[in-house]
């Protein structure tokens, strides 16, 4: 990484805690480069993460505001922060278990709402931090601690899941497609709406060793054949597609995207923290002569 980018990292906490061969370090680097490419102000950017290995990508490595939340909730925390201060760029970085299992509900609703946050899902297809349990992203038949005879449940296709929920910007790359990944992350960070990027990342320690891919090189060889550009994928016949996963960017047609919900509701000037405006009474509010206040909304029985 260029030394010019070092100020954006808390160098005193390096090296990262990631295992040898883990893909999350590649994603960490790609994020920093994409932030630089996108030209975003690090001091106006909030990185939100949940629980798990991927949640440690921004926290504490990024020299910016970071919010390391409870398990599964980073998107909900991010929603609050973004609505409270639309002057913040809000970027969620977390894992597949965090964002799509325990936090799956928040993910689909954020996509549906089209809130202007960027969600980067580091998908290593397993629960790494807890020792390697089956995830909703673990391919069928794969071995984990809790699928010792091979997983029997079909996994989510995360991109199709988010697209189905209305996600305006949806993308997938493996961390081996690092140039495309940086380019896509750059676009996602500046996208005016909800953006979701799945970064498929190898976990040799907990996933690879049980599934005949114990090294980074093994993952590279396997993923290279399996993950294909979406344009190539679209030209394949169904038989060819069967064991392939498309990568690339899917953006909804502009006229089908609803405006982000967090536009124009800024009540906190981005530079000051305290929203201490004095809420002046609005016109027509109540009235001054012993004025039983009309209850607004929720009126029971019209008559």
């Amino acid at each position: 990484m260029s030394r010019q980018l070092y100020p954006h990292l808390r160098l005193d906490v390096f090296p990262t805690p990631y295992c040898t061969g883990c893909g999350h370090g590649i994603l960490l680097g790609a994020m920093v480069r994409a932030m630089d490419e996108a030209g975003l102000d690090w001091d106006k950017t909030l990185f939100v993460s949940g629980i798990g290995c991927a949640a440690w990508i921004p926290s504490p490595h990024f020299n910016a505001d970071t919010l390391h939340t409870t398990h599964g909730r980073p998107i909900a925390f991010a929603t609050g922060a973004r609505l409270a201060n639309p002057g913040l760029n809000v970027v969620v970085v977390s894992g597949d278990g965090d964002l799509t299992a325990i936090g799956g509900n928040h993910l689909i609703h954020a996509a549906r709402r089209n809130i202007r946050i960027t969600v980067v899902c580091a998908n290593n297809r397993v629960y790494g931090m807890t020792g390697g349990q089956v995830a909703p992203t673990t391919p069928e038949g794969c071995f984990t601690q809790t699928s010792p005879w091979g997983g029997e449940e079909p996994p989510f296709d995360l991109c199709r899941l988010v697209m189905g929920a209305g996600g305006a910007f949806v993308a997938r790359h493996t961390v081996f497609q690092v140039r495309q990944l940086i380019k896509t992350l750059t676009r996602a960070l500046t996208f005016d709406g909800f953006a979701f990027v799945e970064a498929v990342s190898p976990c040799p320690t907990h996933y690879g060793k049980l599934n005949d891919t114990p090294t980074l090189a093994d993952f590279h060889n396997q993923m290279k054949g399996q993950y294909v550009d979406r344009r190539r994928y679209d030209r394949m016949n169904p038989e060819e597609q069967a064991d392939k996963i498309p990568t690339g960017v899917w953006i909804k047609a502009a006229d089908t995207i609803t405006p982000p919900i967090d536009k124009g509701s800024s009540f906190i000037p981005p530079s000051s923290g305290l929203g201490s405006s004095s809420n002046p009474p609005s016109a027509g509010q109540g009235n001054s002569s012993n004025p039983p206040l009309r209850s607004r909304g929720g009126q029971r029985g019209g008559i």
Partner: peptide, 20 residues
């Protein structure tokens, strides 16, 4: 429910306040 019982209750309460 549906007869406006609660509405009538609120109305009487409001009238009470109005009457001091």
């Amino acid at each position: 429910g549906g007869q406006g019982v609660i509405f009538a209750g609120e109305l009487l309460g409001r009238a009470g306040i109005r009457a001091g």
